[in-house]
Write a protein that binds this DNA or RNA. Structure first.
Length: 590
RNA sequence: GCCGGCAUAGCUCAACGGUAGAGCAACGGUUUUGUAAACCGUAGGUUGUAGGUUCGAUUCCUAUUGCCGGCUCCA
């Protein structure tokens, strides 16, 4: 068997059997659920009534695994010939999860994998489709690692029992494992929550509530630049920009259907008196945009209408779901709704895909694309769905875009394209999305007058580029490991006079000149050593440039430039440096 | 919401039944520096919150809030 990346998941799956065997030998009452390989390792779910796994258990289990591996066991596949008998056997052993799985797969020629020793004794068996490595010599004791314990519902359904999951990983050799563990460490250092504190970017306070973010000046600066980019690009691409309220009467959300379909995610405003009107904090911007559309008559000539807003919405989340900037309860969507005729749809979708691709390119970000199609229960006409799905596919195919299709995974009101960006820890987050909506135009009964004079219902498209400003900034922080490119950096230049006494005036002059030209500059004339100030600005604050000025610079009206992550890059006149950095900012160099 | 873990100074962590300690940051002073951490000093905490056990609780127990790892959900 070849040892390559394609077969790595086979190794991991086999390792999960060894882990299950180790757990059952240490905890004989452990019932087995499922134990698949994942992208980065494997896990196994167990049901132990009387015991919860501890960190120490993980060490013991790992040791046990190594012991088992030393026995040089082989994996052997056997067909389950008498399913009923085997189900009964599983049940008698208390293996209720395996019994359930086997019954379900009774017509799929179910197989068992036996783990055997040299003499042919079966030490462990597991219901499993395979495949596996031939024997345990492929699994190296020093290339496996148990990572963490987590709760997981049986079959991922919260109505089912909570099982205990052990996450682990395995590689072909020790070096690969060590590289991976190192990668995890590096990823942890990039964690936007860690950098958020370190670089004074944002905070979330218990007094305010979970998932409600305070943007500190540093991150607010980054956001300002992002928003400037966003507005300029929208104007260029023919959008109009609007603003809408934070709250609305419940009546609006009845018409939109949110009260029926989105209730558990909405914040209701407490009424003082029984007779007071019920107001609700907006979880989405679309109803407002539709009302703006409705405030005028529209004809086919005035479409498409592209309406954008940086709209702040609030969505109630389950308490365990919040995390940093990526999962919050209050967030600003860079939202837009495009109202168009069916004929315009493909062009409009194309325009949005262009927008997303161009934007991600600016940040050097990789993304994956998924198309979700019509679910079983849906609203709208079948022909419209087919037109829309074909339009989405056509638009992506034309540009040779790779995408996965999630059949039947669209919303009840329309198909969608999701763009997913990976964070430092390899988790993917949805940022941009394009979503067709056959529901709201009907509910609000919006129309346009077509060439033939008839009033027709326009096609409506929801779309975001960044998704939410909060999440996107979280991803940005990790993407750049906190070292923002110059155009985004909260502080772009620090000026460090060698002697605060001798060079104070000149340093001040350089500082003012840069500031007057719109460069975010900090004059670091603290009574600290020059080395300390250089180090702190470049390494701790991650300022892109430090300008050191002393006698020589003062005399020549120049600055000695040190670039973050690079080192000294020479001396330039103040004007030359200014031109250089202005160009770098203008081109948004990453 | 569920399972498990955690909560000590602005930050990172220590002490774990007997009057809470360090480094960094802050503040004061000395130093005025030629390219990624100068020196000395000062101050800073009802140990997340509320109960309980105890002669005594940061330490043990209960509840609660928040955070972390997941499940579920999702921008």
């Amino acid at each position: 068997m070849e040892k390559n990346n394609e077969t790595l998941h086979i190794l991991r799956h086999s390792a999960s059997h060894i882990m299950a065997q180790a757990v059952q030998s240490l905890f004989p009452h452990a019932k087995l659920a499922i134990g698949p390989a994942t992208d980065s390792g494997f896990y196994y779910d167990f049901d132990l009534d009387e015991h919860t796994f501890t960190q120490e258990d993980l060490v013991k289990i790992e040791e046990k695994m190594k012991e088992i591996l030393k026995q040089n066991l082989s994996f052997e596949k056997v067909l389950v010939e008498d399913v009923d008998a085997k189900v009964a056997e599983f049940k008698s052993q208390g293996e209720i999860y395996k019994a359930e799985l086997l019954e379900e797969h009774r017509n799929d020629a179910p197989t068992l994998y036996l783990t055997k020793d040299k003499d042919g004794n079966v030490l462990f068996n597991d219901l499993c489709a395979g495949p596996h490595v031939p024997n345990t010599s492929y699994i190296k004791g020093n290339a496996i690692k148990l990572l963490k314990i987590a709760g997981a519902y049986w079959r991922g359904n919260e109505k089912n029992k909570m099982l205990q999951r052990i996450y682990a990983t395995a590689f072909w050799n020790k070096e690969d494992l060590e590289n991976y563990l190192h990668l995890l460490e590096e990823a942890e250092k990039r964690d936007h929550r860690k950098l958020g504190t370190q670089l004074d970017l944002f905070s979330v306070r218990e007094e305010i509530g979970g998932g409600l973010v305070l943007w500190h000046p540093n991150l607010a600066t980054v956001r300002e630049e992002i928003e400037n980019y966003w507005r300029t690009e929208h104007r260029k691409r023919g959008y109009v920009i609007v603003n809408t309220p934070q709250i609305a009467k419940s009546k609006l959300w009845e018409i939109s259907g949110h009260i029926d379909h989105y209730r558990e995610n909405m914040f209701f405003i407490q009424k003082e008196n029984e007779d007071d009107e019920q107001y609700i904090v907006k979880p989405m911007n679309c109803p407002f945009h539709i009302l703006i559309y409705q405030s005028n008559r529209h004809s086919y000539r005035s479409l498409p209408l592209r309406m954008a807003e940086l709209g702040t919405v609030y969505r109630k989340e389950k308490s365990g779901a919040l995390s940093g900037l990526t999962r919050v309860q209050g967030f600003t969507q860079d939202d837009a709704h495009i109202f168009c005729t069916p004929e315009q749809l493909v062009d409009e979708i194309n325009g949005v895909i262009d927008f997303v691709a161009d934007t991600m390119k600016i940040f050097n970000m990789e993304f994956e694309v998924e198309l979700s199609t019509r679910p079983e229960s849906y609203v709208g006409k079948l022909e419209n769905w087919e037109l829309a799905e074909a339009g989405l596919k056509e638009a992506m195919d034309k540009r040779g875009m790779q995408y996965d299709i999630n059949e039947g995974d669209g919303a009840f009101y329309g198909p969608k394209i999701d763009f997913k960006v990976k964070d430092a820890l390899g988790r993917t987050w949805q940022c941009a999305t394009i979503q067709l909506d056959f529901n709201l135009p009907e509910r609000f009964d919006i129309k346009y007058q077509d060439k033939d004079g008839q009033l027709k219902t326009p096609v409506m498209l929801h779309r975001v580029i960044f998704g939410s400003m909060e999440r996107f900034h979280g991803i940005l922080i990790e993407h750049f490991a906190g070292a923002f490119p110059t155009w985004l950096a909260p502080t772009q230049v620090s000026v460090v006079p060698i002697s605060n006494e001798k060079h104070a005036d000149f340093a001040e002059k350089v500082y003012k000149k840069l500031r007057e030209n719109g460069i975010r500059t900090y004059l670091d004339d603290r009574s600290e050593s020059m080395n300390y100030r250089i180090r702190e600005n470049l390494q701790d604050k991650k300022v892109p440039y430090v300008l050191v000025v002393g006698d020589k610079e003062q005399e020549a009206n120049s600055v000695a430039i040190r670039q973050r992550g690079v080192g000294q890059i020479g001396t330039k006149s103040v004007d030359e440096f200014l031109d250089m950095i202005l160009e770098e900012i203008k081109t948004r160099k990453c």
